[in-house]
């Protein structure tokens, strides 16, 4: 029992020889975000507040594909999306198509709390952000040099990259502007507080070179994000596979309808998903944590009240 928290910064084909200068800032980012979450939970913050805080932290870190550092659409713009869900009430909020809102996750929370709706997208979501007075900036704020390069490479390769794949590069070139393994991914966080309340939050810039208007799994309740009284789940990977697998809801459904443990439910969902498509972090009401993936790696971190802490990228031995 007690509180527990887990977070991710994207799952995908992360090469085992990821250079230290690429690995380190991301590990640091995960560690810092974990600290933010742990100290919130220790000071009695609700799970819902903790996941929002952690995802804000990850959105503000340009090393991850959410907020600043979001990957670019085929027209070079940023379209961010996010989703938050409170497991005890099953209240939820989601946003898509944001181009100026600094913290998409906080706008999702406002949709949940201040509108009769769950999900707002594009111009309507931007107008709501202005009405609520949340921090907005010029869209160029979110665009990093690395992501411009990544888009150019994707266009050269004439394909849509999934949100966690390394930038495409010609075989064996070691000196492209963005070296292989410059992994970035969707971010997410799940937590259970000392009262057993569960919450989840996920935020993303989507796919490199995605079509303008593309919506992925992240903002869809039951796909990328889901929480109820059993567990809280945030998924990452190939959005289209996660949507069709209703991945986040299925972890909860297996616990609810088949009485599986969190570990068995989450493992089964990830195992049944097509290889190389899915990773997730999940916590249960009892304070268990699991972070399975069927990709090469997943940037992830977790901590529990009894003192276990982990920050990792590749499978643990």
């Amino acid at each position: 029992m007690g509180w527990a928290i887990a977070l991710h910064g994207g799952a995908g084909d992360i090469p085992m020889d990821l250079p230290a200068e690429r690995r380190q800032p991301r590990e640091d980012g995960l560690r810092r975000a974990l600290e933010v979450g742990v100290s919130a939970l220790k000071s009695q913050a609700s799970a819902l507040d903790a996941v929002e805080l952690v995802v804000r932290e990850l959105e503000n870190n340009p090393n991850f594909n959410a907020g600043k550092g979001s990957v670019l659409t085929s027209s070079g713009s940023v379209e961010m999306e996010a989703c938050i869900m409170d497991g005890s009430t099953k209240n939820c909020g989601a946003v898509s198509g944001l181009s100026t809102v600094v913290n998409a996750i906080s706008l999702a929370r406002l949709v949940m709390e201040k509108t009769p709706h769950i999900y707002l997208g594009f111009d309507g979501a931007e107008a709501f952000a202005r009405e609520q007075g949340v921090e907005t900036v010029d869209p160029s704020h979110f665009i990093t040099v690395e992501n411009i390069e990544r888009l150019n490479q994707a266009k050269d390769a004439n394909r849509v990259q999934i949100d966690y794949t390394p930038p495409f590069q010609a075989a064996n070139t070691k000196d492209t502007a963005v070296p292989e393994g410059d992994q970035i991914g969707t971010v997410g966080c799940v937590a259970v507080d000392i009262h057993g309340n569960l919450a989840t939050a996920t935020s993303t810039g989507g796919l490199v070179n995605k079509m303008v208007g593309r919506i992925g799994d992240t903002p869809i309740i039951g796909a990328g994000t889901y929480a109820n009284s059993f567990c809280a789940v945030s998924a990452t990977g190939k959005g289209e596979a996660i949507i069709r697998g209703t991945v986040a809801r299925d972890v909860a459904a297996l616990m609810e309808y088949k009485s599986l443990s969190l570990k068995d439910a989450a493992s089964q969902v990830v195992k049944c998903a097509p290889k190389g498509t899915t990773g997730l972090v999940a916590v249960s009401a009892a304070g268990e944590v699991i972070m399975p993936f069927n990709t090469t790696g997943m940037f992830r971190a977790c901590a529990t009240e009894d003192g276990n802490t982990e920050v990792a990228i590749w499978p643990s031995l």
Binding site: V160, M211, V212, G213, R214, G216, I220, G239, E240, I243
Partner: peptide, 15 residues
Amino acid sequence: KSPHSYLAFSGAEAF
């Protein structure tokens, strides 16, 4: 016909 599952607003119209 698209690599995606879900398109919205002006992007959907353009498609």
